[in-house]
Amino acid sequence: MPPVHRSVVYGWLRHDKKFPHVWCPGCGLGILLGSLLRALSQSGLDKNQVVLVSGIGCSGRLPVYVDVGSVHTTHGRALTFATGIKLAKPELTVITVMGDGDATAIGGNHLIHAARRNLDIKTVIINNQTYGMTGGQYSPTTPLGAKATTAPYGHIEPSFDISALSATAGASFVARSTVYHVTQLDQLLGQLIAKPGFGVVEVLSPCHTNFGRQNRLGSQVDMMLEFKKRGVRVERWQKLGPQEREGRYPLGVLVDRQQPSFDDSYQAMAAQAAALRREKQP
């Protein structure tokens, strides 16, 4: 792949939008945005072919900075809007960006059904283990025992593994990375864009402002170094024993399978329906 220069990335940013963006200093969302723009610029797609859809929360503000068709929807519903867009215009590349609360709490139902349906939507879930924009309340991915503004005595609920959930629900492509592993993230997002069917890339990202501060995890740099320590490439992960896996997680492509996408099945069904109708009304 040819190198992507920052100037190309700048070309995908909206020039009439005010910068710097709204996120906290050091927020992983900015790193993800850059990574997504590099992946898009390398995908060979025209800006007019891409639609970026988000929900609510910090991640919800991402599409507005990108010079493509962008839709900032309601909380948790990005995938439903994306479903309508993709069905209406199958030729478009529809990418949704959601947070962990957005995708797995309020929008959890839409996530599993979108995965089951396997409509060709590319989904990026940025997982910072908390509700950042609303002030650090616990989310479905907040670790057991962690503090949150709604878990002052420590979190007592087990958390979702977003990648495993997406895989089980039927996604064609599932991968995990972190904003620290940014070159890997570039590659995975590139694969996500190229892969037909429903795909999910889970991106671990620090929320040092809310989650980090409440749990004394230090700066975003410290939190990103934690990703480095705990994240293990999937190839190596497979060779690890249960004890070595403790407290760590695999990074890379977790699921990559070929299965009929909703678009293809729908086209086939519609053609059959049209043929049946022609038979009936010659």
Binding site: P2, P3, V4, H5, R6, S7, V8, V9, Y10, G11, L13, H15, F19, P20, H21, W23, P25, G26, C27, G28, L29, G30, I31, L33, G34, S35, R38, V179, Y180, V182, T183, D186
Partner: peptide, 26 residues
């Protein structure tokens, strides 16, 4: 790497493009 890990697009490595936003790779 600094460029990729900058969340704010606030630095650029290599020869500065004539103008931010120029689409070509210098």
């Amino acid at each position: 790497l600094c460029e990729m890990l900058c969340p704010d697009f606030a630095l650029s490595v290599g020869e500065a493009p004539a103008q931010p936003g120029a689409a070509a790779v210098p």
